[in-house]
Amino acid sequence: MARRDRSTGRNTIGDLSDPALISTLTGWLERSGASALEITTPDGGVLKIALDAGARLEEIAEPAPAIPARPEGRAVKAPMAGLFRDRHPAAPETGPLAGEGRALEAGAVVGFVEVGPVLLPVTAPDAGVVGEIRTRTGDLIGYGDPVLTMEPSP
């Protein structure tokens, strides 16, 4: 388990304002392959946002073929690499924000990408109905990976 334990109080993230680190990260995000989820800082610190990175990488490395080209479906994509959450971590008892068949407004939050302690929203670009869920909660996803597909409202 490579994910850091916050309760130990040990901060394993180095100085993230370091330009070299930012550049590394940005490059990684642009490639969006999510193949470099461990970021080593110049001082030897490591940012790890992966659960069991090796195994997960294989899953997400199976790329496009897994996405059926349903012409009417439009993918809702992850804004950044991290762990997908289908609901807010403070409300585990609620159901997923976007279940299959649910109608959503444009801009609705369908889930979150967890990057360390930070949560980024995954938002529906247009109004529509949730088609296929492509990512399970807890999965490691890369930038631009489809989280789910949306179909136009009937």
Partner: peptide, 24 residues
């Protein structure tokens, strides 16, 4: 110590994420 680490972690990661999103 755990509390301070959480705050420091949020501060650093928030900055990182903002910079990365700005770059994109």
């Amino acid at each position: 110590t755990a509390l301070a680490a959480y705050i420091a972690d949020v501060r650093k990661t928030a900055r990182l994420v903002r910079q990365a999103l700005a770059a994109m």
